[in-house]
Design a protein around this nucleic acid. Structure first.
Lengths: 203, 203
DNA sequence: CGGACGCTTGATTGTCCTCAAGATCGGTGG
DNA sequence: CCACCGATCTTGAGGACAATCAAGCGTCCG
C-alpha cells in the first residue's frame, strides 16, 4: 500500500471529494469534521495510529480529515475492496469490525453530549489518559495536539466554555495546565469521578 | 434464517446480553437505546423494515432493542459470520456497508443535537416524512409508533420540551396533531426550512 | 514593535430543564 | 353505565447552565 506523509493542517480529504480510498493511519493524529451551512463545525472524532478512517456508505466523503500534526497514512483503494475481500474472506469482516468500533465511539459521544460541560471535558481528558496508558505513554501527561476550538467542536461546547472548564479543573486541583503545553493530571481519581462514561444498566 | 415474531414492548435483546446474533428486521419498528447510571436513557436510533441491527465490536450487547409494535425479525448467528463470509466474499462487505449506514445515521444525530429544540423536532418529522415517501406511504400523514419520551430521549430533549415544540409547530401551522393519533404535515416547505439537515460545505 | 492567533475571564442573555399542576384517553371493576 | 385509575401528554412558572458579546492577556513571528 502506498504511504503518504502530510504535515499539520494539511487535509487527507475534504468533504465532497470522491470517496476513492480508505485510509489507515500509521502515525500522528487526524481530526474528522464537517462544516454546516450555519458555519458551525462538528468534529465527529479523531483518528490515531492504527485507526482506519474514511469509511462511509456514499460515494463522496461527508467529512473532512485534517492532520493535526505530521502524519503517515496508507491508502486503500475502494475499488480494490471487492478483490481484497475475494482473496481474504476475513477482510470484509475486518472492515465491518472497524466500522463497528467507530460506531461505538460515535454512540459514546452521543451519550456524553448531554452531560454538564465539566464532566464532558473530564471525560475527554480521561479517555486521553487511558489511551496514553494503552500505548505505553505516561497517562499523567497529556499532550493535546488540537486547539480548544477542536475540543469544543467535538464536545459540542464553545471555546469559552472549554477554557472555563479547563480553568475550573485546575482550580479544583484535578489538573495542572502548563503554558502552551501539556496537561498534568494531578488527581486521576477525581477525573474518573467526573468523567467516567456512565455505565450501562440492563433493560 | 429463523424468523421470530415479537409484540410491542417486547425486547429483541437487552444490554448486557451475549451478542450471539445479528438481526434483520422484516417488518415493524424497533427502538435501540441504552440506560445509564444516572437513570437517563439515550435512544441511539430506530430500526425499520430491511435494517440490520445488533452490530457491535464487543461480545455483549451495549444497547437494548425493544419492539415498538409487532415485529418480525430474522436472526443471523454471529458464529456463522465467518462461514458466510467464506461462502460469499461480498457478505463481509455487505455488513460493512450496513455498519456504515448506521454510522452515518448516528453522525447525523450528532449534528442535529446542537440545534434548537424546534429544529431538532422538525428534522425528526422531516426524516419521517421522507421515509414514508421512499416506502410509498403518504409523506403528509406521519404515524409515530413511539411515545414523546422515546422522541425526547432520541433528540436529547425532555418530554415537556418535545410536547411544547409539537404545540409550537401546530400553532405555526406547520403540522396538525390529531388526538392520540397521526400527525398531518400542512406546510412541508416550512418543515424543510426548519428541519433540513444542514448541508455540508467543502473544506 | 506590532499584529495575528490562541487562550482566558467577565457580564449578560436565552434556551431548555425542573418542578408542578392539569388534561385526555383507555382500561377496569363496581 | 359510569366512576376511578394509570399512562401519556400538555401547559405554566421559575431557575440553571452554557452561549453570546466583549475585553484583555500571553506567545509566536514577521
Amino acid at each position: 500500500m502506498p504511504t503518504r506523509r502530510l504535515e499539520a493542517k494539511e487535509h487527507v480529504f475534504l468533504a465532497g471529494d470522491p470517496r476513492a480510498y480508505l485510509y489507515k493511519l500509521d502515525s500522528g493524529v487526524v481530526c474528522l469534521y464537517r462544516i454546516v451551512v450555519s458555519g458551525r463545525r462538528q468534529v465527529t472524532g479523531f483518528a490515531f495510529a492504527g485507526d482506519i478512517f474514511g469509511m462511509g456508505a456514499l460515494n463522496r466523503h461527508v467529512l473532512s480529515a485534517q492532520a493535526l500534526r505530521t502524519i503517515r497514512v496508507q491508502s486503500i483503494p475502494i475499488a480494490a475492496l471487492g478483490r481484497l475481500a475475494g482473496n481474504d474472506p476475513r477482510f470484509g469482516l475486518k472492515l465491518y469490525e472497524a466500522a463497528c468500533l467507530e460506531l461505538a465511539s460515535t454512540q459514546q459521544t452521543l451519550l456524553v453530549i448531554k452531560r454538564p460541560a465539566l464532566e464532558r471535558l473530564a471525560g475527554f481528558l480521561l479517555v486521553w489518559a487511558q489511551r496514553n496508558g494503552r500505548n505505553g505513554e505516561d497517562p499523567e501527561i497529556l499532550i493535546l495536539p488540537m486547539t480548544r476550538a477542536d475540543i469544543g467542536d467535538f464536545l459540542g461546547l464553545t471555546i469559552e466554555t472549554v477554557s472555563r472548564m479547563f480553568s475550573k479543573l485546575q482550580a479544583e486541583g484535578v489538573i495542572e495546565i502548563k503554558q502552551r503545553g501539556p496537561i498534568r493530571v494531578l488527581d486521576i481519581r477525581k477525573l474518573q469521578e467526573l468523567g467516567s462514561p456512565e455505565d450501562v444498566i440492563a433493560q
